[in-house]
């Protein structure tokens, strides 16, 4: 077994411009797909609780269909399948001076459609968790359905939605690697093509694995910060724990962090 340590460290210290651009693609794909997925998921989540049966049915059908198809199949379907059948062909386009390749667009749409189905269930759970009394109180002060949705239902549902949403984004950061199959120049694809020319396959794969680990770890911190912001109303101020404390507690055996305080 041989592991070229100097090559490996070199990759970590200076991954090169190609890899950094690929990293931008990976992050952009994940963020855009997540944002679009959240929009789809919110519509689906509300749709599944709609008073109209047809709307409920369409949304339930969407969730059932998409959750039953592998993401990889979806991505290839959006990129090659639709074009082959003559439905829709993604083409490169320039938005605000940034060129989005056809494969990048297809990947974002495919990942978003996939995410939307899962998000729909998460959003539905969140909405259902909002107490009936809260809605009645909002109605009793004369709020319209729209007002009570964005002032009461959504902010309260957000407390329930954010933790699983964060986990989904963690997942999404890694799932973007599948877009390599349709030729999106993200970090896994450029790593693979580089390994074909350098034969340092293992070193490069460890390096790219570390890159994914770095992304998810950074996100983990962001997620904790968001969740602690959303929990302001729960604990009195002097009891509120810092992000650092919460992270420490996460590694401790007692997830409550009680042992840490004592």
């Amino acid at each position: 077994m041989s592991f070229d340590w100097s090559f490996f460290w070199g990759r970590l210290v200076d991954p090169g411009e190609v890899f950094l651009w690929a990293l931008v693609n990976t992050i952009a794909m994940a963020v855009l797909a997540m944002a679009l997925g959240l929009v789809i998921g919110t519509l689906v989540g509300f749709g599944r609780l709609s008073p109209f049966r047809a709307v409920r049915f369409v949304c339930a059908f969407y969730v059932w269909l998409i959750r039953g198809i592998p993401v990889l199949v979806l991505l290839v379907m959006f990129f090659s399948g639709l074009a082959a059948a003559g439905f829709y062909r993604f083409a490169d386009m320039t938005l605000f001076g940034v060129t989005l390749t056809a494969s990048f667009q297809a990947a974002v749409v495919g990942l978003a459609v996939h995410e939307g189905a899962y998000m729909g269930e998460i959003v539905r759970n969140g909405i259902q968790a909002v107490g009936k009394g809260q809605i009645e109180a909002a109605k009793s002060i004369g709020m319209t359905t729209l007002q009570l949705t964005y002032r009461i239902t959504l902010p309260q549902a957000a407390r329930v939605i954010v933790p699983p949403l964060g986990n989904d984004f963690n997942h999404m950061l890694k799932t973007t690697s599948l877009a390599s199959v349709i030729g999106v120049r993200e970090i896994f694809l450029v790593t693979e093509s580089l390994s074909a020319t350098t034969f340092k396959t293992f070193e490069l794969l460890v390096a790219v694995a570390l890159a994914y680990l770095m992304l998810t770890t950074v996100w983990n911190f962001v997620q904790m910060w968001i969740e602690s912001r959303l929990r302001r109303h729960e604990t009195s101020d002097h009891m509120q724990r810092s992000t650092r404390e919460r992270l420490f507690a996460a590694f401790a055996s007692n997830p409550d962090g009680a042992s840490f305080r004592r």
Binding site: G131, Q134, A137, P155, Q156, H233
Partner: peptide, 11 residues
């Protein structure tokens, strides 16, 4: 309207 369970917006 004032409710039995208060129903203050907790957020």
């Amino acid at each position: 309207m004032v409710f039995q369970q208060f129903n203050l917006f907790w957020h």
